[in-house]
Every structure is written in structure tokens, then in C-alpha cells.
Computed example of a mutant assay.
Amino acid sequence: MIKLYGTSMSRAARSLWALEEAGVKYEHVPVGFTGETRKPEYLKINPNGHMPALDDNGTFLWESMAINLYIAEKYAKAPLWPSTVEGHAACYQWSFWGMTEMETPLLEIFMSRMRPADQRDEKVAQAGIEKLKTPLKVLDDHLQKSDYLLGKEFTIADLNVASVMSLAPLIQLDLSANPAAQKWLQKCLERPANQRAVAMK
């Protein structure tokens, strides 16, 4: 059976979501932030000491986006994993875009705003907001013409990008200037599979 290591308070949440969407049986192995990822037994699974990690009957993977694309390709059916090479390429494109264009500034804002009050730096948060303006416009422009990233159906591309953007509500990011993206994000995050994933430890 598949084992997914990590807490839903980490990037493991997006892989738990992918497993839930794919409908595959798996075991969730909670891993805490208090040094558990540095224990020798965990480092054998993920030598980086980060979450998540996947054990699929002896196939070990780390990096959440790689795990999600693997889950989709091996276990999911269309439309979650598209049936064409072109659809696969679009999933790779949007997934990598989410990491390279969106994740870093979102994390900058998160780290700036979620620290104790005396350690917060609103200048850093505002710089992150400024960096997000261009990718948010790209996303919003695209979603004005399409229900989801690849068309009318939810795919692993939507899951991956929405999982990155799930930080937006936590940091109270104002998305009102990007209404199509805002509506899409809410629709994605409200999916039952995601609700089950975030409810885990």
C-alpha cells in the first residue's frame, strides 16, 4: 500500500489531496515539525529531511509536485490526468509555473505576516504582493476564458496550482482585482477531496 509521510500543515497537504482525488488506497503517516524529519529512519525515505515523502511499495519519491504528477499519471483517470501528451505537457507547465512564479512570493508574505507581532515585516509582505501582480494577472486572464486551467474539467494542474495558492486565504491576500482567479481558487479549495486532506493531522 502507498504510504504518504507528512503533516497536512505542510506541502504534504497537496499530495494528500492528490491521493484523495485519485481515489487510491493509502496510509497517511503523520510527521511532525519537531525534528521527526531529521531522524535516521525518515532520512532513509527523504534524505533532504523535508515533507512530504511517498513510499509506493518500495518506490520512494520526494518533492510534492513530483509526487502529485506521479500519482496522477499512475493512478488517476481523465480528466484528473489528461489522456493526451499535450494535456500532460499543460499539467507540467502549470504545475511548474505555480512553483516558480507563485510559491516564493506567497511564502514571503506568509513568513512576514504569520510571525509574532514584534517580528513581522510588512515591507517584505508588500514586496511579495507586488511580485504576485504579474502572475496573478496571467492566471486571471487565462481563467476568464476557461473554467479550469485546461478547459472545462478539473485536472492535476488545477490541484497543484490551487494548493500553492491555498496560502492566499491564510495571509488575507486581496484577490478582488483578479475575480476569475479568486472564483477558481475558491471552487478548487472547496472540493471534498481537499476538505478531507486538510482535515488530517
Score class of each variant (00 low, 15 high):
W94K: 03
Y92Q: 11
F96R: 06
I109D: 00
L107A: 07
L139N: 01
Y148P: 01
E101Y: 06
W94Q: 04
I156S: 03
D147K: 15
Y92R: 13
P105W: 04
P116L: 06
T84H: 01
G128L: 01
G151E: 08
V138Y: 10
I109E: 00
E103N: 06
K123I: 09
L106S: 04
G98D: 00
P135H: 02
F96Y: 10
A117Q: 14
M114A: 05
Q126H: 13
S95T: 10
L159V: 10
D158L: 06
D140L: 05
L143I: 09
K123P: 00
A90W: 10
K133C: 05
I109M: 05
L143F: 08
L150S: 05
I129Q: 11
L143W: 05
K123N: 14
G87E: 04
P135T: 07
L143S: 04
A90M: 14
L106V: 04
K137C: 09
D147H: 13
S146R: 14
F96S: 10
L149I: 08
E153Q: 14
A157I: 09
P135D: 02
V124H: 02
T134P: 01
S95E: 03
A89R: 13
S112A: 15
V85F: 12
A157K: 04
M114K: 12
S112G: 09
D158T: 05
S95D: 00
P105E: 03
W97T: 09
D158Y: 01
M111Y: 11
D141Q: 13
M99F: 08
